[in-house]
Design a protein around this nucleic acid. Structure first.
Lengths: 210, 210
DNA sequence: CCTACCGATCGGTAGG
DNA sequence: CCTACCGATCGGTAGG
């Protein structure tokens, strides 16, 4: 689970500064259902009334937990990014460069394609809707995350297993695109599996050491 | 240029059914400036008043040319898709499988990354905003477009030059993602060039014939 | 957290 | 194409 950030975790009424933890407090419910609605309809198209209903409360009550709609979006993105970051970091520490890379890709794809994997998808596709201060913050989270991939690709280049070694940045972004675009076409009910996609990515981006 | 579709080309007043062609009639101005605004802010965030102002007319006048806001979105997508489809089809007919593939990728990337290449980007990233009837129509345009790529990849497999031959669909979607995601990171002012990206894609997806 | 409510803005229309 | 306008809905607030 994501740890709440300093900016968006505390309600604005001093009378009740700490939300009781646990998966069923109001804030958690709002963020979870907002993630789904933002992914399905987009940030602008999802109304505060829909968010409130999906979270099982009145629309005015949202603003007991969040200052405004954008702050909910930031919370969704922070949680998505933190979860995927943690999963991919663990994968990176798991084995040799090639095996770790495959597991990192697996974890990243799970983070955007699994059921209830809405948060990270919103992170990837709704950046435009962020106010500029929040956008800088979120961009930094993204850079931190991509730095992991950059380091992993450097390690693969060092052992001669990265096919895009001539242009590390372009090939890294090609990989990100190949993964993130799956949100648009991946259909488990048509037989797509994350494992097969990882295999394909490995064939394209990895090579035997020379 | 895109040819207007039957559904969205004719204004609703019988008194003036045919718009005079040319790049400066009202309809063309609306579509062009809407493409830019939809790309920058998203369909929902761009208001009809902004669209009208960018096209140099009053907000009510938009509805002399289009029945509603969604119809403007469809027109933007149709034009983007038609332009890129034509450019890529011409590239496909241009040479051997490998050379044609490289030119197709070049044309596709130009269609989403060049200045004023807003239409196709809107096509790629705003599908959610379409009413369901229009969505079916647009999805069909996309399928027709992707069929070209499918055929080209089949040709590359036949000559043994496609690295993802074991899973043509997955590798094709990986390619689409690697290209379309460039919208998110490509910055010509930081030295990114389409040519370098095409080279990288070729290294990843093509191989020497066996 | 709920009730009750508000000002602003939205997409769209009538009539010319 | 413009002028003038409307009903609906939006995000958000006050007070408890």
């Amino acid at each position: 689970m994501a740890k709440p950030s300093a900016e968006s975790a505390s309600p604005r009424k001093p009378g009740r500064p700490k939300a009781p933890p646990g998966p069923d407090n109001g804030r958690t419910r709002i963020v979870r259902s907002a993630a789904r609605l933002f992914r399905e309809k987009g940030f602008r198209a999802a109304t505060v009334r829909e968010l409130a209903e999906a979270a099982g409360m009145q629309s005015g009550s949202l603003f007991y937990f969040f200052r405004n709609k954008e702050e909910i979006l930031v919370a969704v993105m922070e949680e998505g990014m933190a979860d995927v970051h943690a999963a991919v970091a663990a994968a990176q520490a798991s084995g040799g460069p090639v095996a770790a890379f495959r597991l990192m890709a697996q974890r990243h794809l799970e983070g955007i394609l699994d059921r209830d994997a809405d948060h990270m998808t919103v992170m990837l596709y709704e950046t435009r809707a962020l106010p500029s201060a929040a956008e800088r913050h979120v961009r930094q989270l993204r850079r931190d995350y991509e730095a992991m991939w950059e380091a992993q690709i450097d390690a693969l280049i060092a052992v001669g297993c990265w096919r895009g070694a001539e242009s590390p940045r372009l090939s890294r972004m090609a990989l990100m695109g190949a993964m993130n675009w799956a949100v648009q076409w991946f259909r488990p009910d048509r037989g797509d599996t994350i494992e097969a996609l990882v295999d394909t990515l490995a064939q394209l981006f990895l090579k035997e050491s020379e």
